[in-house]
Design a protein around this nucleic acid. Structure first.
Lengths: 230, 230
DNA sequence: GTCTATACACCGATAGAC
DNA sequence: GTCTATCGGTGTATAGAC
């Protein structure tokens, strides 16, 4: 009986925690991360603001939870796209993952802003966010490593001034990939999010209208830049 | 005499306006655009908050002024870099402009966040910002058009699905450039800001350490992607 | 053009009753 | 674990005196 009661309590706690995060995500859309307010969340849930402190010890901890959720949600979307095209040629899989990233960002613009937009002044993300943040990146690395194993990766040259840093990055991030591929991957990763954030944040307004073919073509060129063939 | 008095008043007005914007830029760094506050600006200047309404009718108008200044400051930096390398080969000039953009962003991270980071919730930039916003972009377009006139621009293929949009974009943005160059330029522009914002916003923390050679190499590849040779 | 005063809203966080 | 009450701040914007 006491274990049942304990289970019910734990369940209730999980549900309330989820409700708080959902309300906070709505807040994020209306006010932005910099103005996320525990009081407004409490108001929306019909709770006293002081009650929230039983779930999140501070506003920043709530923000951290939202950031981790966002990274995980994006990572899961990317992984699903990669796995859905398991047998396809590397470039097609690369483009599919890029399109999944874009779709996720368009569907969750405020969470995209939260993790890839301007840093929130006064907030510094704790180490807890690092594994979740790395999740999307790993999809591109794994994809490229697979292509490398299958002989579908072209080599290219690296300027001498970049060689030591490329070697360091490769050792850190993907020891099984050629160093110049690792730097190209990191650059492509940043460039991909440039394309996505420009669209999501409205910079393409009245500049690019047919965004899907535009993006697909750009994603293909990113794949070629990394060295993926076919 | 009355014209002198009038001139002195106009001068004072310009000086106070500049002081308000300077204080607001410091605010931007500490609190972010979403929390920019007229009262805090007034406090810093030792003025009553109500006095600021004689200079800016609302918080949003002050924000607009800061946005236009930021775009102009970036645009001027890009133009200076382009002109400093007037005789150099197109790729070298391209890279020089990219490096000027990066240096500007690193020197003005909060203004970079203001114009290329997350949109400010509840704020919508008026049409006044458009000319200033286009200024950086024009530098890249002019550079590429010059290379095109000099026969230093390679042609490339475009997928059929992108051809109509490419033609529309070219007609709008640069009728003197091949359509596939125009789409490549817009993509490169977004990708450049992806690289720059990732560095400025801290996404390269513990990923890329030697950022200058990394960036230079990436900028060169962007130039080649647009079709610039030499 | 600057001031004081004001109306009316907001916030994070804590103490202590239940 | 939720509440009320509270402390000590924050903000936009306007009215009206000088």
């Amino acid at each position: 009986m006491s274990s049942t009661a304990h289970g019910a309590r734990a369940r209730a706690r999980i549900e309330v925690t989820a409700a708080i995060k959902d309300a906070a995500r709505r807040q994020l859309a209306e006010e932005g991360a910099a103005r996320l307010s525990l009081r407004a969340v409490a108001r929306e849930l019909g709770l006293a603001s002081s009650a929230l402190y039983r779930y999140f010890p501070s506003r920043d901890e709530l923000l951290t939870a939202l950031i981790i959720d966002a990274y995980d949600s994006l990572g899961a979307a990317a992984e699903a796209a990669r796995d859905a095209e398991a047998g396809a040629p590397p470039v097609a899989r690369w483009v599919a993952v890029c399109e999944a990233v874009r779709r996720w960002a368009l569907a969750h613009p405020h969470e995209c802003a939260l993790i890839y937009g301007s840093p929130v002044p006064g907030y510094s993300a704790p180490q807890d966010t690092v594994p979740a943040a790395a999740r999307v990146g790993r999809v591109f690395f794994a994809l490229t490593a697979e292509a490398h194993r299958d002989g579908a990766l072209a080599r290219s040259d690296l300027p001498a001034e970049l060689a030591p840093e490329a070697a360091r990055m490769a050792a850190d991030l993907a020891p099984d990939l050629p160093p110049e591929t690792v730097t190209a991957l990191v650059a492509a990763w940043a460039e991909l999010f440039g394309l996505v954030c420009f669209e999501v944040f409205g910079q393409f307004h009245r500049v690019v209208e047919e965004r899907e073919p535009f993006f697909r073509h750009a994603a293909e060129r990113l794949a070629h830049g990394v060295g993926l063939r076919r």
